[in-house]
Nucleic acid binder design. Structure first.
Length: 183
DNA sequence: CCCTGATTCGC
DNA sequence: GCGAATCAGG
């Protein structure tokens, strides 16, 4: 695959929309995210609106290392125990407290489809226990914490979120449930 | 471990 | 110009 005008245009458009390189690569097909990033740079539209997220992170010659490694104290970093934080989320997971959520009218309706889907998911959930929770397992509680019938979904979480896709859709209400259906 | 973009450099 | 490999950070 080569960078035809069309493809470059798509690249520009998506990059402009804030799409990630991998997403763009996936959309274009035939290229990896690396290719996309490389192209982005060559096109000179590297940073999006001069974000200051990574101002000047000190360049480091990765390969061009002609000089000897020199002394390496080989300082060992003490491994710190990873504490798994578990929040016993109530039946109704609260709304994320990041964005200023206005009055929140009555958009608390979850599409029947989504609910049905969740039910399905919960059937096939891995039913992992507290100890099995990791940062990448859905932490959606299922069952009654006060009884034996309690476990966590355990499916793969959706990037960053604490829950799997199905549960994220229930926990995090899109501002506009209706309209704007997925493509 | 999953992801993100940034950079280098052989091709 | 291209992009895999690599780096660096989340």
């Amino acid at each position: 695959m080569s960078w035809t005008d069309e493809r470059v245009e798509t690249l520009k458009k998506m990059w402009g929309e804030g799409q990630s390189a991998s997403q763009i690569a996936k959309e274009l097909g035939g290229v990896t995210r690396n290719a996309v990033i490389g192209k982005v740079h060559r096109l000179g539209l590297s940073n999006r609106a001069g974000a200051s997220s990574t101002p000047a992170p000190e360049r480091k010659a990765a390969k061009a290392d002609t000089s000897a490694p020199a002394a390496k104290p080989a300082a060992k970093v003490a491994p710190q125990d990873k504490v798994i934080e578990v929040t016993v989320t109530p039946r109704k997971p609260i709304v994320p407290a990041g964005q200023p959520l206005p009055p929140q009218p009555s958009a608390n309706e979850i599409s029947p489809e989504t609910l049905a889907n969740v039910r399905e998911v919960e059937k096939t959930a891995k039913r992992i226990g507290l100890m099995d929770l990791t940062e990448r397992t859905c932490k959606w509680p299922i069952g009654d914490p006060a009884t034996e019938d309690f476990w966590f979904c355990g499916l793969s979480v959706q990037q960053g979120k604490p829950y799997c896709e199905a549960h994220v859709s229930v926990a995090f209400q899109p501002m506009s449930s209706r309209r704007d259906r997925r493509r």
